[in-house]
Design a protein around this nucleic acid. Structure first.
Lengths: 345, 345
DNA sequence: TTTAGCACTCACGAGCGAAGAGTGCTAATC
DNA sequence: GATTAGCACTCTTCGCTCGTGAGTGCTAAA
């Protein structure tokens, strides 16, 4: 793809992102820095249509970028990132301000997601950091009925996870306390994930004190619960986009937003590797969001708390702006997670 | 208001609920059990319009019920409740099934809300039971940094609440354990609300052991956190209703659904007294939902866990059906809460 | 290779008229 | 006096036509 047609394509995309209307050759001719007649642009546009970068709603209308065009546009954007004017000091200050307002990590995460959706007019999604890699601080076992034990795990970052374990018969509270004590003594300071993987191997020296049932309870207690909740914010924003004025397409998207399994699997796919991931239109078919673009970024660091943040909008999203915004938020969240890690040590 | 015009009004409402189209005199004449000509119906409809029960989109169109009409309709519905064919045994069985699937109270609540939204095509809202009235089982204090204490409260119903307490200086863990131990010893089995109200009076005999700071921590630890999260489910359902095809009205409503403060204050207003509450159209202006009807019911019992469940739909909602559905759900949730109370004792 | 010119296409909006649903009023009927 | 039939009237809706204009594709000249 030679440079001139690429330039024209990008101009078309920019224009379409602003107006949401099919773009004609004349408006591009006026907008281009080099002087080219509308006829020339038309020839190029015709070629671009043939190669699948543009499409026409009808024969005599202007052109609309296809998913492929956006793909190209975003790839170029990511290959030549604009030198971001990041004022790290100012950011850190802002963050300190935020951290003061939100004593709990969860609140801070939500607050950040809310800010992001307001700034971008997209729908924000937040995957809280997985507790797996964070280190155990305390285990508590409480019998709450003849057949149920309440397990409370506290991590060194101050996260509290709890679930109820169904049992055939619940041992007396003293035994539960003893099991919890042994688990704590042996595993505090280790990552929950690791403990769980090698539970039996690690549990050797004090194991004789424990009955088979106790070992079973201990092992179950440390099971990491299913992938966390996805927090969705700003879903009303989608109503503003002309591409979703049609209530049926809106319905389809909103349905997906309630399909927590789909969202979780989306995040799983998008946070496999660190950094920013952009998925455009049809690339999201697996998650039922083929009319949307999804931009996702990880935050935190591998091995520590790793979470994900994503923005969902129409494919005609303002990629440069949104990419910058999500970058800033992801830095903010990384600060936050580190902050809580250090403070929580 | 004499009986005949009331009958006609109710028939109009029923018809409008089904079709969402202005109702004409002829269709009512055909639908009424007694035989009346369209002209007669017209006279009555004209009177009803004068007294504010009906309105006309334009002069030559049929009539549409006003909020006042729905108010009448619902009041009559609640005054003469249809003898519900409630098969309590079957319900209890269904509930047992559900309880088996959802070991945690929270999951059960959400699952029930989801079922309800699917059955009614409304938006469901759930206010989890307030923890205030439930009895304390355990208090845990964990220092997680130089200036922060993590407070974990466990109730006898197996609810775990946690928050981080900012402090000038965090005492050593042994002191925290001691404080927690004393709190537990003195207050276990009492309702959190009560403890908090009379904290100082109740804390006498062991108080000498505690420093001023410890007492302050203890008091703060038992503070009931702000009104809980409201869980919203099925918001996509609104897209299906013709009254929300206009994207702007949809936007307004969805905005409100994200305004958690408004929702919380709505629940506060609607769960002040036990039982079912119906708020129609303009009656919801304070919560920004003047284009909707809200049906809310409490569940659980005063003094135990009291929560709320609500359905939001267009004012043209199928009141009889939805009232029955919410009644069933509220019974189910009350079972659940009792179940968890008894099991958790 | 680029550009000017031109014929052609097609959505969009305005304007118009017929159809139809529904009303309000009046006069006749029970 | 209530009810009803009849009728004129209103107003939306739908389909139709037609002009407009944005935009295209093609061709021939620069």
């Amino acid at each position: 793809m030679e440079s001139r047609s690429e330039q024209i394509l990008n101009t078309i995309i920019d224009h379409y992102i602003q107006t949401a209307e099919p773009v004609g050759s004349r408006s591009i001719s006026k907008k281009l820095p080099v002087s080219l007649s509308a006829a020339t642009i038309r020839n190029v546009m015709s070629d671009l249509t043939d190669s699948g970068f543009l499409s026409q709603p009808h024969t005599s209308a202007g052109r609309v970028p296809t998913d492929l065009a956006y793909r190209h546009y975003v790839d170029r954007l990511q290959a030549n990132p604009t030198p971001e004017l990041v004022d790290l000091e100012a950011e850190e200050e802002q963050f300190a301000e935020l951290a003061k307002r939100c004593p709990r990590l969860e609140d801070l995460l939500q607050e950040t997601a809310n800010e992001l959706t307001q700034a971008t007019h997209c729908v924000g999604m937040l995957l809280p950091p997985r507790s797996g890699p964070s280190r155990l601080k305390k285990v508590e076992l409480l019998g709450i009925s003849q057949t149920q034990v309440l397990v409370i795990l506290v991590t060194q970052t101050g996260m509290v996870k709890n679930r109820i374990l169904p049992l055939k018969e619940c041992p007396p509270q003293e035994d539960l306390d003893k099991i919890a004590g042994i688990l704590c003594g042996q595993f505090a300071g280790q990552s929950i994930e690791e403990i769980h993987l090698n539970f039996l191997e690690r549990l050797t020296d004090d194991a004789k004190e424990l009955s088979a049932q106790a070992i079973r309870i201990g092992k179950k207690a440390l099971e990491i619960e299913a992938a966390g909740e996805v927090y969705v914010s700003g879903s009303a924003n989608l109503c503003e986009y002309p591409e979703f004025f049609d209530h049926h397409s809106l319905y389809k998207v909103y349905r997906q937003f309630e399909n927590k399994e789909a969202l979780a699997s989306m995040f799983e796919a998008l946070t496999k590797t660190e950094g920013l991931h952009v998925q455009i239109g049809g690339e999201n078919r697996a998650f039922g969001l083929e009319s949307c673009s999804v931009l996702a970024s990880t935050y935190g660091t591998q091995g520590a708390l790793l979470g994900g943040i994503a923005l969902v909008g129409p494919t005609r999203i303002d990629y440069p702006k949104v990419i910058e915004a999500i970058g800033r938020s992801s830095r903010k969240l990384s600060y936050a997670v580190n902050h809580f890690l250090i403070e929580g040590r």
